[in-house]
């Protein structure tokens, strides 16, 4: 399908995902994702960073409806996908959005051959002709840098990097418009990470993919994304084009996060001053996502907004 003009392909509005647990008549609510709004444009790579437990994985999984959102709406290609689940909606979702998982060992069924794993999506989409399926799987394997012979093998016969390639082939074979990649390289060795990042980059260009890239490694997210959102305790605290996030971070949490990223440069590391972040509620004013300069949003009060604007000289 031809890629239309860049407009939002995914629109997330006030999305919340709360988990409730009851123990001994005590109810605890975990607000894993709390009132998050953003859009992703066609062909864009949107990076999501945050520390473990901040809700970034839950957000990805809620969008693709592995969870049922507590409130809010998600629209994909203009159609709402957060409502009641039907067969038809499930089909719409799975043929448009695919997911690449973190753990290349746990996310592949050890009893299925690569042909079965990668081809399964085609069967579900009603491609009955097995010869056709086989040839499409082989083509896809070659696209992700594996060989056609690999189709007959089982996951355990592959290295971590190769397994992640199988996961990528499985996601791309149904020709989705968007990919949600949840920590796709963090389980891999450094030398293999670069292979997979370069592969994702070239596939992104080739297929005109929109990507939601979730990771905790800020250098990798920065390298890969056009825009970045920083998540903390279920909320976005800052969202901006990736260069702005790194060169003009505004929210104290973003600053703390950046000051903690180790750089492969001994001199910088020795003279580095760390910023620590302590979460505090503002004394006055209400917190909301506010646009400081066009495209750069910070979760702050009206008063802080003025302060940030002065800081950027706007």
């Amino acid at each position: 399908m031809p890629v239309e003009d860049a407009g939002p392909i995914l629109e997330v509005k006030n999305l919340s995902m709360h988990f409730t647990s009851r123990r001994r008549r005590r109810t605890t609510v975990v607000k894993a994702v709390d009132d998050v709004s953003f859009t992703i444009n066609k062909g864009e790579t949107f990076g999501l960073v945050g520390e473990s437990g901040c809700g970034k994985t839950t957000l990805g999984r809620t969008i693709i409806r592995l969870y049922n959102p507590t409130s809010g709406t998600v629209k994909f290609g203009g159609r709402e996908i957060s409502g009641r689940m039907t067969r038809e909606l499930r089909k719409y979702l799975t043929s448009n959005i695919a997911m690449i998982f973190q753990d290349p060992i746990a996310s592949l069924n050890p009893r299925m051959t690569v042909q079965e794993i990668v081809g399964e999506g085609l069967i579900i989409r009603g491609l009955k002709d097995s010869a056709e399926r086989e040839s499409r799987v082989k083509l896809m394997l070659e696209k992700v840098g594996l060989q056609a012979e690999h189709a007959a093998r089982y996951p355990h016969e592959f290295s971590g990097g190769q397994r992640q390639r199988i996961g990528i082939a499985r996601a791309l074979i149904v020709e989705p418009k968007m990919i949600i990649a949840d920590e796709p390289v963090s389980a891999l060795d450094v030398s293999v990470q670069a292979q997979v990042i370069n592969l994702l980059n070239s596939l992104k260009r080739e297929f005109g993919l929109t990507v939601l890239f979730i990771a905790h490694n800020l250098s990798v997210v920065k390298y890969f994304s056009d825009r970045i959102a920083v998540m903390y305790r279920g909320k976005f605290v800052e969202m901006a084009p990736s260069d702005d996030i790194y060169h003009h971070p505004l929210h104290p949490y973003t600053k703390a996060l950046l000051s903690a990223v180790p750089q492969p440069d001994p001199h910088t590391e020795r003279s580095r001053r760390r910023i620590y972040y302590e979460h505090t509620e503002p004394a006055t004013g209400t917190l909301a996502m506010r646009e400081v300069v066009p495209g750069h949003y910070v979760y702050c009060t009206e008063e802080e907004l003025q302060f940030y604007r002065r800081q950027l000289g706007a």
Partner: peptide
């Protein structure tokens, strides 16, 4: 060399040098 150039730092823009094979 390969190890150092296969990781992006915060200013990396160009394609990463990946180490082929395993």
């Amino acid at each position: 060399w390969a190890l150092l150039s296969s990781i992006p730092d915060l200013d990396t823009k160009e394609e990463l040098v990946s180490i082929p094979g395993s």
